[in-house]
Design a protein around this nucleic acid. Structure first.
Lengths: 366, 366
DNA sequence: AGGAACGTTGACAGCGCTACCAGCACAGAC
DNA sequence: GTCTGTGCTGGTAGCGCTGTCAACGTTCCT
């Protein structure tokens, strides 16, 4: 039952150099910049390293070179589906590089974020990915002073710290409401949970669209700080219905809530979309499979993470992108739940947003 | 637009020691084992460190001490909800410790796992968390020879490498089928996707339970190697229905598939549970909110990750748990989708599995 | 009183690697 | 033939920290 106790049969760079008949420093160069070696020595070191099964000691490398090959990632939640897609993108992009990911969870607290940032920065990361644009002043100062490339993800806004990739949650919400208007809906409710800054901006977009049409009423909105869930969607919708029974559509700040609303409608025998239309946000996979299928605003989460990491790595290696701010856009996906014609399963797409378009400046609203 | 260029205002341990009027080694001890210092020096070093804003250099520490404070985690997927819960547990447990998590994704490939393992081990991690019990012989040899504590998570089985925490997927599946038998169902189908080793063992459990009852038929089973999704659940169920129209229940290898089956039933106007009962696996949050509510086998995913990391940290610090193998059990949660009485929303619980019970030996079957 | 035992402290010597700079050989320019 | 430039290579000197061991003072025991 006792744990093993193997001696560390460590192969050092010096051993490799000796076997290859070169100096340690030449062997070292082989691993960092092979082109700098003559072909003869290069192959000698290569085969020596392989023969000995040499693996560089990262700690020694970091100490000697005064920099690490770690990319710090700060995200607010590990639970949220949205972030698991983003993370997958980040990890996929990092795998083919020599950088490793160091992940930390801010739990939607900008104070926690500040603390973690301080911790990260002290270890001199090669790069940093942070979520959103709502850092504390202190955090912002640290980021500005940081000696490494930084990407802000999830949304775009003014004054990027460095690079930025995301989309306008405000515009996305407005597009969703515009779609519902186009389908003839007027009394459109809003259901939101967690109310992090991005959800807040979706609410702002909803409010502005409704106000523009002269249709905004406070009692059309139900929100909570509670973390989102399907069950919560049903509960919030119940509240909303009590406040405003005459509602003809609901815009949900995310898809879990929308699914909860769908089931609550079923429970109450409310016909979708005849009596109430539903539009969600994010377009998770299941939205296309529900009955009726659920409309949503598609966001490019995997691509966001993947591109962020790729941009960051390019920047670390000295190749800064021409367009440091990238708007990945969004798309309103119309399905049965918001189709006046009840179009069976045929997902009509009403495009919006600058999908995949490079923009030099953020398309933010504030 | 150019990136910042701040000089690295670094505070070294020597500076702290000087300000505190002690030798560097004493200051060093303060950070590793404060109890070893006299109270006077302890407070002197503490305030000196705070005054200078000292942050230890982890690379130097790792190099000098020949060990890192990194816990390696190997999981097969970042997409799967199941793993996001486990991960959350791991991160939560690690946050209060001095260890940091290094995560890698094996993508359900044991060859990839072997490669990553080699990489990890070369950096002398403080501990390792690996998924499952199906490593390659080579991986197994490396794990056995590893000089650090190791926890295998997600399931339990014979011959643990070191510690192990999980539950028997085989028993869990058998319990689900027993529940369906108890409700009077006989022609019970099985729907499975991805078919990783754990899903395979659920299938094995299903097959054995059905065979025990003399009810097994090959055409009651539909599986695919494709990654799981709600849409896939609907598709697989459609295939199953074509193979065996007389089915009266379906056991789904996970909840996403179960949700897909629910919607496919709705599409085909099949009454749940009157015509077909459904039982899922994992008991994700939404299962309690669907219409009808969906039965499932509850697994303790967060706890699994959390306890695994906690056990590992204890073991790293030299306090090995008395019971290195921990069976977290499972619970069949009966809801409307498999209740003969169509009990409204009241989640009757038919217990099974050694929930939260410590067992010295794995309760595995193979 | 002598000695063992303990708690506390510091000197020394690296951990394995890379930054920096010097040096060498060779090619081409004058 | 000398000079300069280029490409490749190696020596030296740490990076910031900790393991080991010795030394010190104090207490407690016999």
């Amino acid at each position: 039952m006792g744990r093993k106790r193997t001696k560390s049969g460590k192969i050092r760079l010096a051993e490799v150099a000796e076997l290859a008949g070169v100096s340690p420093i030449t062997a070292s160069r082989f691993f960092r910049n092979p082109e700098a070696l003559s072909v003869a020595k290069r192959t000698r070191v290569e085969s020596a390293a392989k023969e000995l099964g040499y693996v560089p000691n990262l700690a020694a490398r970091a100490l000697a070179s005064q920099r690490t090959e770690v990319i710090g990632v700060l995200i607010p939640s590990l639970t949220n589906n949205v972030f698991s897609d983003v993370l997958r993108g980040i990890y996929d992009a990092s795998e083919s590089s020599r950088y490793s990911i160091q992940l930390s969870n801010t739990r939607y607290s900008i104070l926690q974020e500040e603390k973690l940032l301080r911790l990260f920065l002290a270890q001199k990361p090669a790069g940093l990915i942070v979520t959103g644009i709502d850092q504390t002043a202190e955090s912002r100062a640290m980021l500005d002073a940081a000696d490494c490339p930084i990407v802000q993800i999830m949304e775009i806004g003014p004054n990027p710290v460095d690079m930025m990739i995301g989309f306008s949650h405000y515009d996305a919400a407005r597009a969703a409401i515009a779609h519902l208007f186009a389908q003839g809906h007027r009394k459109i409710g809003f259901v939101g949970a967690r109310m992090d800054p991005r959800v807040q901006r979706r609410l702002d977009g909803y409010v502005s669209a409704m106000k523009d049409a002269g249709l905004f009423e406070q009692r059309l909105v139900v929100t909570t700080a509670t973390p989102t869930s399907v069950t919560l969607g049903a509960a919030l919708f119940t509240d909303l219905l009590a406040q405003e029974p005459g509602m003809d559509a609901v815009f949900c700040a995310n898809d879990d809530l929308a699914l909860g609303v769908l089931f609550e409608c079923r429970r109450r025998e409310i016909a979708i979309p005849e009596q109430i239309a539903i539009v969600g946000f994010n377009d998770l996979e299941f939205m296309a499979s529900t009955v009726p299928t659920l409309s949503s605003v598609r966001t490019n989460r995997y691509e966001m993470g993947n591109t962020a990491a790729a941009m960051l790595i390019e920047a670390i290696d000295g190749r800064r992108p021409q367009h440091p701010v990238l708007d990945l856009g969004f798309k309103v996906i119309e399905r049965q739940s918001s189709s006046a014609r009840r179009s069976d399963n045929r997902p009509a797409v009403s495009g919006a947003g600058a999908a995949n378009k490079l923009v030099a400046l953020p398309s933010g609203h504030d």
